[in-house]
Amino acid sequence: MTSDVLLRRATGADALDMAEVWLRSSSSALPMVRRAHSDEVRSWFAHVVVSDHECWVAEEQGGAGAAPPRPAAARPGTG
Rank of each mutant, 00 (worst) to 15 (best):
D4T: 15
H37L: 08
F45S: 00
T11H: 05
L6R: 12
A64W: 05
P76M: 10
L6V: 15
P68M: 12
G79S: 13
A19N: 00
S27K: 10
S25P: 01
V49M: 04
E54I: 11
L16G: 01
V21T: 07
S26Q: 10
E40P: 03
Q61T: 11
R42T: 01
G65F: 06
A67P: 00
P68L: 13
A29D: 08
D39Q: 05
S38I: 06
E20F: 06
H47A: 09
C55S: 05
P71W: 10
E60Y: 08
Q61E: 15
R9M: 11
E40N: 11
A74R: 14
A64I: 15
M32S: 13
R42K: 14
A58T: 08
R35V: 04
A10T: 02
A73G: 07
A58H: 05
V50E: 01
A46I: 00
D4Q: 14
V57Q: 03
A10K: 02
A64N: 10
D4Y: 09
A29Q: 08
E60I: 15
S26Y: 09
T78E: 13
C55H: 02
D14L: 05
P69Y: 13
L7D: 06
W44H: 10
S3N: 10
H47V: 06
T78F: 11
L6N: 09
L30R: 13
L30P: 01
L30I: 05
E54Y: 09
S28D: 14
R24N: 10
A29S: 14
W44G: 03
H47P: 01
E54A: 13
W22S: 00
S43M: 05
G77W: 08
C55E: 04
